[in-house]
């Protein structure tokens, strides 16, 4: 028999937070994967919402590409509000 598919599990810990990767598990289909994720990763009230994603559906960037992917953003400080000087006394900006 083929290997049971691998699923990556993401849990939203509380309302208002984003889903965070917590680990992986095996399940033959999505319905079981979701329930297995509930039983395995939320035994201690760790979550209010779960995503399961087939591991094969995740396309990961390679560490070799890290510079090309992420360094170009490093010199674009003007994207952050702290780049700008605000004259004294200006409120609500």
């Amino acid at each position: 028999m083929e290997q049971t598919p691998l699923w990556e599990v993401f849990v939203r810990a509380r309302r208002g937070l984003s889903h965070t990767h917590v680990g992986s598990l095996h399940a033959p289909d999505a319905e079981l994967a979701l329930r297995n994720a509930r039983d395995l990763y939320t035994r201690r009230q760790e979550g209010v919402s779960i995503w399961v994603v087939p591991a094969g559906a995740i396309i990961a960037s390679s560490p070799d590409e890290k510079d090309a992917f992420f360094d170009p953003a490093a010199d674009k400080v003007y994207r952050h509000p702290t780049f700008y000087e605000v004259p004294d006394g200006v409120a609500h900006l």
Binding site: M1, E2, T4, R12, P28, D29, A30, E31, L32, A33, L34, S49, I50, W51, V52
Partner: peptide, 24 residues
């Protein structure tokens, strides 16, 4: 447990292609 795992795989294969909603 082999027959149970085989059954689950067979069931999943039968339903492969059917879209399952998993996102919350």
């Amino acid at each position: 447990g082999a027959w149970v795992r085989e059954a689950a795989a067979a069931y999943a294969a039968k339903r492969a292609g059917q879209k399952e909603k998993v996102a919350a």
